[in-house]
């Protein structure tokens, strides 16, 4: 488990030669942006994610049916001009249901990713900066959660969260999604702690929390942004898996997971009940992770993927 601690610090001075040559120094933000723009993977991801979000917001407008409408004349029909994705056994419009489910899954993903990144940043920075017993206890806790698969903990905790609303699920997912990143942030902070500007602040008598907030966290922010982006896809995957087995979103709420669970039985005979929501789920997660991956390469060109 030592590999993640050995990740190199993103060196801001490295890789300047491959961009804009001008007399003025290039800001880090511009540098990252220009690297991003030349990554095709970033464009595929961002366009896909944008399209999915727009579709989730406006997708119901051209459709004649709402998610709760039942079309008793067309029960279990295959995709037609009337029902674009077909209907379920009791006449629910799968297109409308997919959009409602997608909205919920997207909201969960887009909230959990950043939330988990914030927790990871704070925990990692505290562990790395304070060191000593704080560090040891936090690292043991993180290691423990890495040995116990978080899926099992989610399922164990689900009786509590089932009785609460689906918003509680966001906190549950964020509460267990920060461990890996916290280890990376900790390793970064430990080397930042020895840099001159942090030493200077410490010797000037700045208190610990201010140093962490003003000096440590801004310096690891690029990692946190990457983590937040990659976390979106991961959170959607966790949510749909939990909901699929009945441990996540509960009826009457609909998410992509519950929709897939409902369509699972007929997957082989009436594939449209399963294949359409599944394809949209995969497309959403794929777009989010492509953006995250491109961001990682742009922020840290030495991470291996985008070099000559």
């Amino acid at each position: 488990m030592s590999m993640i601690e050995e990740m190199p610090i993103a060196d801001t001075s490295a890789g300047t030669q491959d961009v804009i040559r001008s007399a003025k120094p290039v800001s880090r933000f511009r540098l990252v942006l220009s690297r991003l723009r030349s990554t095709p993977r970033f464009w595929v991801g961002i366009v896909g994610l944008g399209a999915i979000i727009l579709w989730a917001v406006f997708g119901l407008v051209p459709n004649a049916w709402n998610a709760t409408d039942l079309d008793v004349y067309n029960m279990g029909s295959s995709p037609t001009a009337l029902h674009w994705f077909g209907t379920s056994d009791i006449g629910e419009d799968i297109y409308a249901q997919t959009i409602v489910g997608l909205r919920k899954s997207l909201v969960i993903g887009l909230l959990v990713g950043p939330l988990a990144a914030i927790v990871a940043g704070i925990v990692g920075a505290v562990a790395g900066y304070l060191g000593g017993w704080w560090d040891r206890v936090i690292i043991w806790f993180i290691d423990l959660l890495l040995v116990l698969p978080s899926l099992f903990l989610f399922i164990l905790l689900s009786p509590i969260f089932k009785s609460l609303s689906w918003v509680a699920l966001i906190f549950l997912l964020a509460g267990f999604g920060w461990m890996i990143m916290a280890r990376v942030i900790r390793a970064q902070t430990m080397s930042l702690r020895e840099r001159d500007f942090i030493k200077a602040a410490r010797f000037m008598g700045v208190d610990t929390w201010t140093i962490i907030r003003r000096h440590v966290l801004p310096n690891v922010s690029s990692l946190l942004i990457i983590d937040a982006t990659l976390g979106v896809g991961g959170a959607i995957l966790s949510e749909t898996t939990l909901s699929f087995f009945g441990f996540g979103i509960q009826a009457p709420d609909v998410s992509l997971g519950t929709l897939l669970s409902a369509g699972q039985g007929a997957a082989a005979t009436r594939p449209w009940l399963f294949v359409f929501p599944a394809a949209i789920l995969v497309f959403t997660v794929l777009s989010a992770s492509l953006v995250g991956d491109a961001l990682r390469d742009a922020v840290d060109p030495t991470s291996g993927v985008n070099r000559d």
Binding site: F244, F274, V282, S289
Partner: peptide, 17 residues
Amino acid sequence: FTVLATPSFVLGILLMI
């Protein structure tokens, strides 16, 4: 990337289809 974006239960059911 596509396989990593697919939940394992979806992959299993797609294989069954």
